[in-house]
Amino acid sequence: MSVEEEEKQPEECLFSSYRFNVRLVQSKLVLGAQHHRTKQVYRTEIDQDAVSNITQGICDKCEQLFDLLQDLIDNEGKTKTASLQLVDEQNKLIFNVTLIIVFGQTSREFPMKLELETVELDDVTRLESIINDQTEQIEQLQLSPHDRFDRALKLISLAKEDFHFRNVSSSDPAALSDNDRTMRCPTFKRHEHHDLANHTLSFGITKSTQMIETSTGKQAIVTTNQGFFPKTKRYQLVRFELHFSGPINERDTFLVGVVSEPDTKEWSASQPPAGSWIFDVCSGSIQYPSGDTRPYTCSLRKLNKIRYVDILLDTQHNRVAFRLDDLTEDQWAFCLPKQIQIEQLFPFILLNTMNLSVSIAQNE
């Protein structure tokens, strides 16, 4: 390894050595970082008036700079349009941000520099931080993916007596039953007239008309009447039981997920609302608020029938996972924005199939 490579290596792994905290406080952006091993804390505050100078006029509001930094932190310092490099200098932690803007066929880099000052902590505070961090790491090592779900089910469940579905689609509301704890698509009956030709020995061919009744279903969207609980319990789970009356075909839709402050009157399967994180049960893929998708787990079409779908929320790190029956992926589906309010996060279901109804599982 060359001297140049040796100098670059510590900087490359520096990002994972810190825990970051980005907050909007009134008209200020508060940026903090804590070193995992030494527990050294760094902090800075950025006023609204300083944002434009720091970002060379690219951002003129704290909210815009907040979104940029949060996106870089959530993606370990690198996105398609920006990168973040950390420099540790004695009593400072420097954020070197590079934003790439494309103009037609050319691109230009805009550098930004944020300096975080060292915050002095007393020995007791530092010791408490070390103990809490070590306890959390041990807990994570002890919990397998199945343990996380099982523990969540034992600790807390959203499915209490007053927990039920509510319609959020005004045009074609879901059919609710079982004290609004079971939902299915609205069904409409249609009568069609069919002309039939009958062959007889004496009269040759006779014609008659037969009326046939068919049923069609439409898309239904529901959320629960309550959001997740505030951070009193780390893991929280809601379970949906599935009841099949026939096979699921290629045109059927079954989405499960979480949505922030739901207002889905204009929601369609192809255009979910902003602030929704979606698991497509039929295909086994997940969909981000941006519309991007990626494979996540087994699909309902491959498994044919399943008994239940679980949503698991880690309120400490704002992470969401899903499970079909006992098939648990060793990965979180989504890392939600740090600023999201847990109590304003609601489970939801979008259903467009006549062969399936969904119930909120009762507590055992």
Rank of each mutant, 00 (worst) to 15 (best):
M1H: 09
M1G: 15
V3T: 11
V3R: 15
E4W: 10
E6P: 01
E7Q: 15
K8G: 13
P10S: 03
E11K: 15
C13F: 14
C13L: 14
N21I: 03
N21M: 08
V22E: 02
R23E: 13
L24M: 10
K28E: 15
L29T: 05
L31S: 11
G32E: 15
G32N: 13
H35E: 15
H36W: 05
V41H: 04
E45G: 10
A50P: 00
A50I: 00
V51M: 04
N53G: 12
N53S: 14
I58Q: 13
C62V: 15
E63D: 12
L65T: 07
L65R: 08
F66G: 05
L68A: 08
L68K: 08
L69A: 12
L69W: 11
D71S: 15
I73E: 08
D74F: 13
D74I: 13
T79I: 07
L86C: 10
V87M: 11
D88P: 06
L93I: 05
I94G: 07
T98M: 06
V102C: 12
G104Y: 12
K113V: 06
E115F: 08
E115G: 09
T118E: 11
V119R: 00
L121V: 02
T125K: 11
T125Q: 09
R126C: 00
E128Y: 09
E128F: 06
D133W: 09
T135D: 12
L141P: 00
L141Y: 11
R148D: 01
D150W: 12
R151W: 09
I156T: 00
A159V: 05
E161G: 10
F163N: 04
F163Q: 03
R166H: 06
N167C: 07
D172T: 11
A174Y: 03
A175L: 13
L176Q: 06
L176M: 09
N179V: 06
T182A: 05
C185I: 03
T187W: 01
R190H: 15
R190Q: 15
L196D: 12
A197K: 15
H199K: 14
T200C: 06
F203A: 13
G204E: 10
I205G: 06
T206S: 14
S208N: 12
I212G: 02
K218L: 04
P230D: 07
Y235A: 08
V238K: 08
F240K: 05
F240R: 04
L242Y: 01
S245Q: 07
I248R: 03
F254E: 01
L255K: 11
G257L: 03
V258M: 00
V258F: 01
V259N: 07
S260W: 07
E261Q: 13
T264P: 09
W267G: 00
W267V: 00
A269E: 12
S270K: 14
P272K: 01
W277I: 00
D280G: 04
V281C: 03
C282G: 02
G284Q: 04
P289E: 05
G291H: 07
T293S: 14
R294K: 14
R294V: 04
R294F: 05
S299E: 07
N304V: 13
K305A: 07
Y308N: 14
L312K: 01
Q316K: 14
A321M: 05
R323Y: 02
D325L: 11
D325M: 10
D325S: 13
D330C: 11
Q331G: 08
W332Q: 01
A333P: 03
A333L: 08
Q341W: 00
L345I: 02
P347E: 02
M354P: 05
M354L: 14
M354I: 09
M354H: 09
I360P: 09
A361N: 09
